[in-house]
């Protein structure tokens, strides 16, 4: 792992909403192909951190480098950067006015990354990968939560991103649908995708993460392998949190 290239480099990141400081000081590096899981109590700044990585939130201080490019710089074309970073949301956010196929094909075609035939082919591949080939012409309203999230993953993958961000992808799902989404994510991790995942699924973190970051109160409290964090946590706040969720 040591000689792998750095995909994400976050340096002294700060983010506040008005007077509310959500991220106080956070520095972290993520390597290519690494699966990083963010754990922490709600309000600890995990989701905000994730949203800063693709600039859905502008930062208040510090810098973020993605693939060697400082994306917090005002002059950077953020749309170009985002083409390379897929994001999956808690509430899926599928385009309600478009069917499954159109959801997946919109960005690649509109941004002229692919022509219609190429995008169609790519969408078919992705739908097969997430096991929803038969749902191509269906609208989001007719899908179950688990199916929606799998389409959302396919949509994000359509742009062939180098990094995937997951913002509590299973939190809005009925329990019996969590597994199907995690399975797709596991497969993605096995394929070597760089992933940053905010989740409460400790089992997923234990099994799939290369590294766990534990956040609390806007700081990175502790980081390490799943074994280090989940079985041998050092910080009192980590121990306290794990006692509550495990």
């Amino acid at each position: 792992m040591a000689d792998k290239k750095i995909m994400v480099k976050v340096d002294h990141l700060k983010k506040h909403f008005g007077k509310l400081e959500v991220i106080k000081d956070l520095s972290v590096e993520i390597e290519e192909g690494e699966v990083v899981v963010l754990l922490g109590p709600s309000g600890s700044g995990k989701s905000t951190f994730l949203r800063c990585l693709n600039q859905l939130e502008t930062v208040s201080g510090g810098t973020i480098e993605i693939d060697g490019k400082v994306i917090t710089d005002r002059h950077v074309d953020i749309n170009k950067v985002r083409e390379n970073i897929g994001m999956v949301f808690q509430h899926f956010n599928l385009f309600n006015n478009k069917n499954v196929l159109q959801n997946i094909m919109l960005a690649p075609v509109e941004l002229k990354v692919m022509n219609k035939e190429e995008a169609r082919k790519r969408a078919d591949e992705l739908l097969e990968r997430v096991g929803l080939t038969d749902k191509a012409d269906v609208y989001p309203a007719q899908l179950s939560g688990g199916q929606k999230q799998r389409v959302a993953i396919a949509r994000a993958l359509a742009m062939n991103p180098d990094i995937m961000l997951f913002d509590e992808p299973t939190s809005a799902l009925d329990p019996e649908m969590v597994g199907e989404v995690l399975a797709v994510m596991k497969e993605l991790a096995a394929d070597g995708m760089t992933m940053v995942v905010v989740t409460h699924e400790i089992g997923f973190a234990r099994e799939v993460a290369d590294r766990i970051l534990f956040m609390d109160g806007g700081y990175l409290v502790e980081e390490g392998t799943p074994d280090e964090i989940l079985n041998h946590p050092k910080e009192a706040r980590t121990i306290d949190f794990l006692n509550k969720v495990l």
Binding site: V81, R82, I85, M87, F89, L94, N97, L106
Partner: peptide
């Protein structure tokens, strides 16, 4: 229209205008 619709569009690299035209306004 739910804010998440525009956020999803932007997260894919679509511009604000494209998000409005293809996703938000039709809804």
């Amino acid at each position: 229209v739910d804010r998440g619709q525009m956020e999803a569009a932007r997260s894919l690299g679509l511009t604000y205008g494209m998000g409005m035209r293809h996703v938000v306004l039709p809804q």
